[in-house]
Design a protein around this nucleic acid. Structure first.
Lengths: 203, 203
DNA sequence: CAAAATTAATGAACAGTGTTTATTAAAAAT
DNA sequence: ATTTTTAATAAACACTGTTCATTAATTTTG
């Protein structure tokens, strides 16, 4: 049965070869701008070959979506070490914002694009995303226990914070901040973040 | 010079014919799923004709983007009649949410898609959008004057509120709420909105 | 080891996309 | 009536995702 094993390993290697290549192209062009033919050319195989390893373009999308969350968790690796939950929450927000700024293509696929969420199976394979989210909710809960946040349903509070963060991030990423002149935009964003954190903090 | 006038009128009629048709198709298919050939077929002209009236697909996009904001303002026509600014603000939020729910294709083009904001000229032609936004900022300012909101930079507060509203709306529209079971999702959204409104309200 | 069976890779095609251009048909001006 | 201007189009270009019959390589069997 050693042949079958090697076969399977080779299949896996090919999959990662395709994904790595798709990944590289995707990072500097954006997903919609990367075609199957582009990927095929990069790995020096024919376009049809890719369909032996992935059902369709969406499945590649899906795989990259998962990888983006892995990368996001790596990006936030320092967070659990922050003992004070409110400090951690604030840092989490800053990191979220920083991630969006530094890796807009990732942010796009994780939260903005509709494609990777069309299928239903994507919940099962959202392990890394679920991890990030539950860590976030846990931090909110701890903030309540330590009296930094008022006692509410912590899931509701978490959703509210995330909504705000995601809202401002996607307005920026999608260029919907033109009503604020370029020079003051960053200032206003910063002020807004501080205001929000102040408003939800228990007084 | 009566010929030139008629010519111009006909040109304008053709433009609106194309736009109306594009609009109809767009509403039930979404912009990316509507092709120039689809539009051409609907108005019974050749695809090339459309390029005599619009530079490219993005220009059609742009026109629909404007129309969406006109429609949005119509949708909110009852708002200015609400005298109490905080009541108005709350209603504005509810209407924003309702708009997203009832007209996701519009919401998509207005705030989510990247295409219509690629060019730089789109600021000048954003009259209806600017109108909606300044009315919103004005309401926030009034809320401060009447003591419903703490005295802060009203533009910063407005951005914060909008970010929250846009955040939750786009999470919903883009199917990023799967961590909350279907049954309780609506409940949680409602609770979040109430929580947010309570937190920003002056105490 | 040779023949048969399985597997992997591909070229070519299909049906679609946005966009351009040379050509034709119609209308207006001379 | 003839020339000029304008409008509309067919056809093409260079792409896209995807499928499938054919070929080439590899593994299994006799």
């Amino acid at each position: 049965m050693t042949v079958k094993q090697r076969r399977e390993r080779e299949k896996e290697e090919m999959r990662t070869l395709i994904l790595d290549s798709a990944h590289k192209l995707f990072i500097d062009k954006g997903f919609d701008e990367v075609s199957i033919r582009n990927i095929a050319e990069a790995i020096e195989y024919s376009p049809a070959t890719i369909y032996l390893y992935f059902k369709d373009k969406n499945e590649i999308f899906h795989a990259l979506h998962q990888e983006a969350f892995r990368f996001y968790n790596q990006f936030n690796i320092e967070l659990p070490a922050i003992r004070d939950p409110f400090d951690r929450l604030v840092k989490m927000g800053e990191k979220y914002f920083e991630f969006m700024t530094l890796h807009p293509k990732y942010y796009n696929i994780m939260f903005l694009m509709e494609a990777p969420m069309r299928n239903d199976e994507c919940i099962d394979e959202w392990e890394e995303g679920a991890k990030a989210h539950s860590f976030f909710e846990q931090t909110v809960l701890e903030c309540m226990e330590k009296g930094y946040l008022a006692a509410d349903d912590h899931r509701v509070v978490a959703l509210t914070i995330w909504s705000y963060m995601h809202g401002i991030c996607s307005l920026i990423i999608r260029n919907r901040m033109k009503m604020y002149p370029e020079e003051i935009r960053e200032q206003i964003q910063k002020q807004s973040f501080e205001l929000f954190m102040n408003k939800i903090r228990k007084r």
